[in-house]
Structure formats: C-alpha cells, structure tokens
C-alpha cells in the first residue's frame, strides 16, 4: 500500500501544477492544443523517470558537496537527449509549437525538486513510482487545461492535422485560445481542483466527527 501512497501523492495530494505550483511555465505555454500538452507531458515523463532512476542509483556514491551540480549535469544531458530524439523522430509541427519549452524542462522545478527531496533518499523502485506519480499529475493537469482551452477557445479538437469541429466557430470564446486565456484557464482549473479537494476534506472531517461522537 505504501507504493500506492507514493503514486497518489504525486497525482493528487501534491499535484505539481495544481497544488504546489512547480513547473508552471509549460502549463501555460504548451496548453494551447491537447496534442502539444500530450507530447510535452511525454517529454517530462521521460526526463523525470530517467533522472529519478539514475539519481537513485548513484545516490550512495555522489559526494554531498557536488550533488547539485551533478544532478544538473545529469538532468541537462537527459533533456538534450530527449530534445534530439523528439526533433528526429516525432512530428515536426509539434516540435515547432513546443519550441524551447522542451529545453526549459531542465529548469523545471519538478525534476530537480523530486531529485533533491525524494530520489536521493529512496531506492530505485520507490523513485520510479514517485516519478510516475508526479509525471501523471503534471500530465493530467495540463491535458485538462489544454482540452478546456482548445474546446472552448477554438471549438475544435485537432490531432496531427485533422480537426473535429465540435462547437461552431462563431460560438467559441477565443479568449481562451489567446495568451491571457492561458492564465485564466489555469486559474479556473486550480480553483476547481481546490474546491473539489475542500469538499472531500470537509466530508472526511464530518465523517470522522460523526464516528468519534458515535463511538463515545
């Protein structure tokens, strides 16, 4: 059960985008289309998983004084590799729209944060699950925002050049497809998430209070 708790931690309780607000830059910059958000979260998953594995493997032999530079070198190498592979093998139009956000994964606080606070203290299996949890949390958050922005902002969902117009273009609120719409959409999703979390917390509290008073 402890493994499941680690996974759910990254997905729900400490969701990087919606709760602890790390790695916000791609959450705003790559959410204009669901396709972009999906490929971005794929890159983050790859880098986070590999960096957690490697750092967890070498955690006992890295001298404490140089650990931050070592982590930075490893993460930067992984990001460069992912960038090169993306450029060569995945669709070019997505690579162009993601632009420099792939390179900016290197300064994404999620990766360095998890390396610092989890991977260098736990074994490889736990680190893998932690990486999966956080990457999934990030992915779910930005894909939801992207879906919201694309559907309401342009009225159509698109994938690899084909698009499906769901809401007629005249009724689409193009605010959400623009720059400021990114901020507003993310703010609304954060508010919605915190609302749902508060409701769940309150329910748990009233249930606990009820069982406590019943057992008296």
């Amino acid at each position: 059960m402890k493994k499941l708790k680690i996974f759910l931690n990254g997905l729900i309780y400490e969701n990087p985008t919606l709760v602890i607000f790390l790695g916000m830059c791609p959450a705003l910059g790559t959410t204009n289309k669901v396709e972009n958000a999906l490929y971005m979260s794929l890159c983050v998953l790859a880098v986070l998983l590999l960096s957690n594995i490697i750092i967890s493997l070498i955690r006992k032999i890295v001298p404490n004084e140089v650990r931050i530079p070592v982590y930075i070198i490893i993460i930067a190498t992984l990001v460069s590799i992912v960038d090169m592979l993306f450029h060569a093998y995945l669709p070019y139009n997505v690579y162009q729209s993601l632009g420099s956000f792939i390179s900016l994964i290197v300064v994404n606080c999620i990766i360095l944060g998890r390396a610092e606070s989890f991977a260098n203290k736990n074994n490889v299996l736990d680190s893998i699950i932690d990486a999966l949890g956080f990457a999934c949390g990030f992915a779910v958050a930005i894909i939801v925002v992207a879906f919201f922005r694309e559907l309401i902002g342009t009225g159509a969902l698109s994938w690899a050049g084909h698009s499906l117009q769901i809401i007629p273009k005249n009724y689409a609120i193009s605010l959400f497809a623009s720059n400021s719409g990114a901020f507003i959409a993310l703010g609304l999703v954060v508010a919605l998430y915190s609302f749902v979390m508060n409701v769940v917390k309150d329910n748990k509290k009233t249930k606990a209070a009820k069982t406590a008073s019943e057992s008296k």
Partner: peptide
C-alpha cells in the same frame, strides 16, 4: 474571496487580466 479561489487561483486570473492589458 471564495475559499476555492484564495491564493494562487485568483492570482492566475489576475495575471490573465494583466496579460490582456499588455497585449
């Protein structure tokens, strides 16, 4: 302020309004 919007949520929405102004 409604409880769900407190903190970063309303901050993000405000940033969106600023972005509109800067457009």
């Amino acid at each position: 302020m409604p409880k769900a919007f407190k903190g970063n949520a309303i901050a993000l929405i405000t940033a969106g309004l600023m972005a509109m102004a800067f457009m």
